[in-house]
Every structure is written in structure tokens, then in C-alpha cells.
Nucleic acid binder design. Sequence first.
RNA 1: GGUGGGGUGGCCGAGCGGCUAAAGGCAGCAGACUGUAAAUCUGCCCUCCUCAGGAGUACGUAGGUUCGAAUCCUACCCCCACCA
Length: 384
Amino acid sequence: MAEFAFTIDAVSGGARTGVLATPRGAIRTPAFMPVGTAGTVKALTTEQVRAAGADVILANTYHLMLRPGPDRLARLGGLHSLMRWYGPILTDSGGFQVMSLAGLRRLTEEGVEFRSHLDGSRRLLTPETSVAIQAESIGADIVMQLDECVALPAARDVVARAMELSIRWARRCKTAFGDRDRQALFGIVQGGLEPDLRQASAQALVDIGFDGYAVGGLAVGEGFAAMCDTLDATTPHLPTERPRYLMGVGKPLDILEAVARGVDMFDCVLPTRAGRHGQAWTWDGPLNLRNARYAEDLTPLDPDSDCPASCSYAKAYLHHLFKAGEHLGPMLLSLHNVAFYQAFMQRLRAAIAHGDFASLRADLAARWRAQARAASDPPGSAAD
RNA sequence: GGUGGGGUGGCCGAGCGGCUAAAGGCAGCAGACUGUAAAUCUGCCCUCCUCAGGAGUACGUAGGUUCGAAUCCUACCCCCACCA
């Protein structure tokens, strides 16, 4: 645990910037973790992920448990050397799949029984097995507790039951994890949009004691304003001196507002998934490179970036690649998006460090909110 | 020249008297994607209008049969295959 010292270098309002030290390297916070569910940040080489500026990536217990399987993964020496990523890896516990694979699982006090989405076979994931797979087979640096993630909107009693189960599982994860110097264990706050449940969840986890605290169960259908409100009701109950991780978030605007509320770590499939689907995130908001308007646009996505996908390839070329169904399109846009997210986080860190966070926040929020509003207006209402 | 097959919306291609503005695919135009069952999914896609509705044109061309035709008949124009 001493290896996971969290140093806060500067604070600006609720936002803070610092470093989470790990045995495999420093994580500069606020941090964005590209998602590498199945042991790959989709469409990117490990070298590209590193070059894009990522300090840490996320991998997934459920998917790696199915393939290549925990025993084989252990024999192969764990995920780091296998995928040649020697920085820290955080693994999700399978809790998200409780929600996303709701039709394929049965929940009991003991754990979650999944019917594999690959072959239908039954797989039991308990707090104990989840921790073992994460810590031993995958060799994750940051292990997440098993939790129950609930889709919103949901009735209060549903959310409350999931939160209470998650706390009991948190205790079992903590016990199973034991004492480890070179790996950390994070608890996950649940409680839907109910401030009192969020507070109770946070308090219970703090009483158990974790190396970091995640906020789960957000960005699951509640909307931007409700997410912000829930963060307002949650982060104040988490220890200042431990890293705070908002799971699964999000769009740059979501991250911006969460950072303002004291969140230190993020992960999201959006940069890679959207990239594969033709959407580029930029300082001006999202662009759909499949749109005809880019067919003859010879400008790059971001001339000021040092990422080749961002600064040297013309939008017209990216447009063509997507139209032609060429693999390079998703590859380049995934790279651009991951690099953009990292550049965005770097800018947040610098602004917090220099005391400019408030003005950066106002600037970006105004820009992206206006952009989001324009996008939601009926076509033709905004003159180009 | 003969025989047979065929000409359907940008393209391919179903349909073979009414339920057809015409299946499906492709192309095209947009949208969505938040701890990845997603290189995926969803709309729109003849024209016009007071667009969850209405009107007008449409299935090679010109006629005809019929209450009603992309679907049946006649002629013509093209295309393909085989035979001369």
C-alpha cells in the first residue's frame, strides 16, 4: 500500500491534480484510462497507447476469464508481459457485466453466475474469484471490488439492495485481497441517484478501508445533470487523501465537470468505440468523419497535436477510409481519440496546477454545451 | 437472319391482375454510442405539399384488355445466350 502513495500537488476549487504512484509507474491525475477490455485497446498497438500519453489502462475480468482464461493467463505470466504493457493496469471486476449482460446472469448473495456470451457455459464470479483472477491471473495493479451496477432509472429499493449487496461484497473482496504491497484494491460506491444512499455507501466503504474509491453506477441512463448532482452528493464523503475514480465516464464534458467535483480517474470506451464508428472528439466537440462535409476537407483533426493521426492525416482521407470500409479508418480515429483524451487530461492537470482551472472549465464547458445544444436541434435550424 | 431469355426506383434484384410508391441487398444522407456481447446499432432514402397526413408521377416505348396492370395482349426499341 505504501507503494500506492497518492500525492496531491495542487487544488483548484474541488479539482485536484497529483500523482498516484504505483510499482509499475506513476499515474498522473486527473487520469484517463483507455479501455482494453479483452487485453487490447481495440484497434491500437500497445506502443500507440503509450505514445498517446496514457499512464494506465483498464482490462476486464469477465472477458479475460472467458478467454484466454485465468489459468492460461497465469501460465502466460499475466497480462502485462503478454500485451507488452508495462505500466499499471486497472481491472474491472465484472460488476459492469452484471448490468450489461443482465439477460445472461443470475445474481445471488454468493456472486454472479454468468452464461458466457461466447458459448453459453456457466461461469460463477464471486468476490473471491474476481479478486483472485484480477490479482493473481491477470496481475492487475489496481483491483476493483465486485459490485452490482444497476441501470438507471431504477426504483429506490432496487438501487438500495444493489448498494447493500455491493458493500457486503466489498468486505469479502477486502478479505480475499488481504495484505499486498504491490497491488491496490478499490471499493465502489453505489446508490443510484439517492444522495443518502450514496453517502451511506461511501461511509461503509471508508469504514472498510480501501486504497481508492470509485463511484459506480453513473452514466448508465441518468443524464448529465443527474450525474453531476450525484457526484456533488458523493465525492464530499470520500477521503480527500485517496484517489477517486468515476467509472465508465465519459464524454469530455462529463470528465470536465467530474474533475471539478474532485474526481481523479476515469475510463470510458467512448474514444475507442466512437473512433471505430467514425466519430472524432476534438476541442470543438465531436465530428462524424463519415459526413459528406469532410469529403474534400484537407485539414487535419488537430494541427497542434503531436499524434500523427491527429495532425498529419487529412479529414478527407479519414472520410475516405470510413467510406471505403478500410481498417485504417477505425485505427486512426481510435488513436486520435485516445490521444485527444490524453491531451485533454494533460490540459486539465496543467490548468489545475497553474490555477487556471476555473477559466478553462468555463471556456470548454461553454463551447461543448453550445455544441451539444446545436447537435440536438433539428437540422436546418443552425446555419453553417 | 432464326430460336430462347430478359428490360423494375442511383446500382443489383424480388414481384408476375387488386393487400405495390413496389421485398431485400448495395450505394447515398443523417443520428446514436459513457466500468465494450458494438469495425455496431437506428432512422431517412421518386417528386411536391399545410409532412405521425395528403397529392402527383412511376416498373423500356406506344397502344390495348380489365372495375383495377409492374404483372395479361399487340407492335416497336434495346440487351443477353445459343444456332446460322
